[in-house]
Amino acid sequence: MAEITGTTWTCYDSNTMTQAEIYGRVLTELGEKDPRVVGVTADLANSTKIGVFGKAFPDRLFNVGIAEQNLFGVAAGLAKSGLIPFASTFAAFASMRAAEQVRTDICYQNLPVKIIATHAGVAFGQAGTTHHCLEDIAIMRAFPNMTVIVPADGIETANAVRASMDIPGPVYIRVGRGFEPKFHASEDYGFRVGKAQRFREGTDLTIIACGIAVLQAAEAAKLLAASDGLSIRVVNMHTIKPIDREEVLAAIRETRRILTVEEHSVIGGLGGAVADVIAESGKGCAFSKLGFNDEFSVVGYPEDLYSHYRLDANGIADAVRAIMGRDFEEDESWEDEV
């Protein structure tokens, strides 16, 4: 049985619990403290692990059946009645089936619905393309009032779930299937919504990553230091919206080369958000986005797909080398531009 110390799960817990279970437990802990916390799901209580909360509070988990539009409408109503609903279903259904309910019922009215969207990206790769979700970051960040968080692992998910309680409006927390490897050693690394974590210092190039790509980016940086003598900064941009502009500007200024890596389409996700900041800064910078190109993803187990789509350490290292070999106008003066 996992040892519980206050609100902290020990490393032992995260090693023995799947990443998804950790968030179910954290939600339960929040439910114990705050009676306004309720859960909502659509026949995926067990698959998403919100069922862990339901076991502790059977009358506070509403299962609306297989009906995602209803799910987010109901969540909006629950929020309007004074509760704090955590709504959980697969990312594909949260972001696409119910997109308008999320936008109009929840974001438009700025209601405190916390969406925990599981099986995002290709975490459920073998299920096929209907169950892949490589568009949700782009969709969710387009909705006013929405906060978008893509945790690097289960520990960060736990932090994000807790932090979402302090955000007055809607939050979209994007997670995988729950079997992803651990990135953080513990929960105490100063997680703050909207503040990127600079995981590794570097001067040649900055990799800005989110989700499962963070661990791979860190591995790639190690590899590149050993094999290519490169000094790579690694930034865990867990919050896509609001994006940490300062961290992006620092990367432009201090490393002049940026690679974004994400388990998402290269259109409109983390790469898009970072590109916006770069373009608006008016500063020169070599820049490239690594993610899924504009085509439907193929079938396969997640690990195979991550290497196929070059989201593993080797793929990331190659993308870094490609940028390092690229010419761009070096400009030492940071202050002289618009």
């Binding site: 073998q126 096929g128 209907t130 079938v299």
Partner: peptide, 27 residues
């Protein structure tokens, strides 16, 4: 279910002979 297979749990009409429409998202 394996890498690059035409068959995932939810069949793709573009890849599997005899499947008329791709389904998998219910409804």
């Amino acid at each position: 279910n394996h890498f690059m297979s035409p068959f995932g749990m939810h069949l793709d009409a573009a890849k599997v002979r005899g499947v008329d429409l791709s389904t998998g998202s219910l409804g």
